[in-house]
């Protein structure tokens, strides 16, 4: 349970709502992206129009003449999900001004994209739309590589991960660079609301969706979305890996609302324990050690990191663990403060 439930979400009410992403789509069994999308659409309180960057979600849900979308949906290109949403929002404003859409009718706009379409290819469109102040929510489902085209590295791929373009072998031990911190790049746009979320904590994700859609301006959600094809893990542990991405502090849950950074959910609990432990509270220290799971355990479940556990690659493992720990320490310091 998150520390504060700012907007009530009742399971009973949600269970009466229709899923807006219909079943029968061609996403892989065990993929977490559609789980996240269904939660997000379920959380929306007003009609939604969505755009989608090229990627798994797009090609698997819109195979002509079928569509899984029970909402108006548009795909244009890989790089312009945000620009497309911005254009649709501008059209909505114009039609409202012209009186062609009733003044009391509200439509919300959600742009969807994977990490390839967001961190890399669509970054310019995203940045432009955020800066122009369109009222829309950009959702990045982050699985850490170009999974749709065959697991090529993206700027979201973690250091050391094996992908088909950073193959771990005799020449290199997986990806040589650290991942980009897109959430913080988005934060630098000073938009009213942005957050990191993970679908294992559905309540947190859905509350964040509501906050984002109600913030009156551009909003951003970076959502953890494990991919068993690319992560080389068991097919049925996607939600567990999402959960442990949070409990290892690889993927902390936090939001930045009007410039103030706030840790959420389990991340908040871990941060509070850490602060007490750092202040010398022995009980807190023990509890923190139990609650915060070691990153190596999370990495071990993923074949893309298997080579890091060979002695020769220990330095890469140490670099990765060190960077995650360092980022976590920095984030804890910022809790409750102006980002």
């Amino acid at each position: 349970m998150p520390a504060q439930a700012s907007i009530p979400l009742k399971l009973k009410e949600l269970s009466n709502k229709r899923d807006l992403l219909a079943g029968g789509h061609r996403m892989c069994a065990g993929c977490i992206a559609p789980t996240a999308v269904r939660q997000i659409l379920l959380a929306a309180e007003h009609p939604v129009v969505a755009t989608n960057a090229t990627g798994c979600l797009e090609v698997s849900t819109s195979i002509y003449p079928y569509s899984s979308w029970r909402i108006p949906w548009m795909h244009s290109a890989f790089e312009n999900s945000a620009a497309t949403a911005a254009g649709i929002e501008a059209m909505y404003d114009s039609l409202k001004q012209q009186g062609k859409i009733p003044a009391d009718k509200r439509i919300d706009f959600i742009a969807l994209g994977g990490d390839g379409g967001t961190y890399d290819i669509g970054l310019q469109a995203l940045s432009g739309a955020l800066e122009r102040g369109h009222r829309f929510l950009y959702v990045c489902y982050d699985n850490g590589a170009y999974m749709n085209t065959g697991i090529q590295r993206s700027s979201s791929t973690p250091r050391g991960a094996h992908t088909t373009t950073t193959p771990a072998g005799k020449v290199i031990p997986g990806k040589q660079q650290f991942r980009k911190d897109l959430t913080k790049i988005v934060a630098a746009h000073n938009i009213p609301y942005l957050a990191q979320a993970s679908p294992n904590n559905w309540r947190d994700l859905m509350q964040k969706t509501r906050k984002a859609l109600n913030c009156g301006g551009p909003a951003f959600l970076n959502v953890m979305a494990p991919c068993h094809r690319g992560w080389r893990c068991k097919i049925d542990i996607g939600i567990e890996l999402a959960r442990d991405s949070v409990s290892t502090c690889f993927w902390p849950l936090y939001e930045i609302e009007n410039g103030i950074l706030k840790l959420n959910g389990e991340t908040k609990q871990l941060a509070d324990l850490k602060k007490k432990a750092d202040a010398g509270d022995e009980a807190a220290k023990t509890k923190y050690g139990q609650k915060k799971k070691p990153l190596t355990g999370w990495l071990k479940q993923q074949g893309r990191f298997a080579h890091l556990f060979k002695p020769a690659n220990e330095y890469v493992l140490n670099e990765l663990v060190g960077r995650v720990e360092n980022d976590w320490n920095n984030l804890v310091e910022k809790d409750g403060k102006l980002f």
Binding site: P47, V49, E58, V59, S62, I63, Y64, P65, S67, W69, R70, I71, P72, W73, M74, H75, S76, I88, M91, Y92, L95, I101, I107
Partner: peptide, 19 residues
Amino acid sequence: PLLDINNPVTYGPIDLQDY
């Protein structure tokens, strides 16, 4: 119209060998 929320339409679907 894309904004006709009562009659949702899918624009820009993937169109394979069969269409």
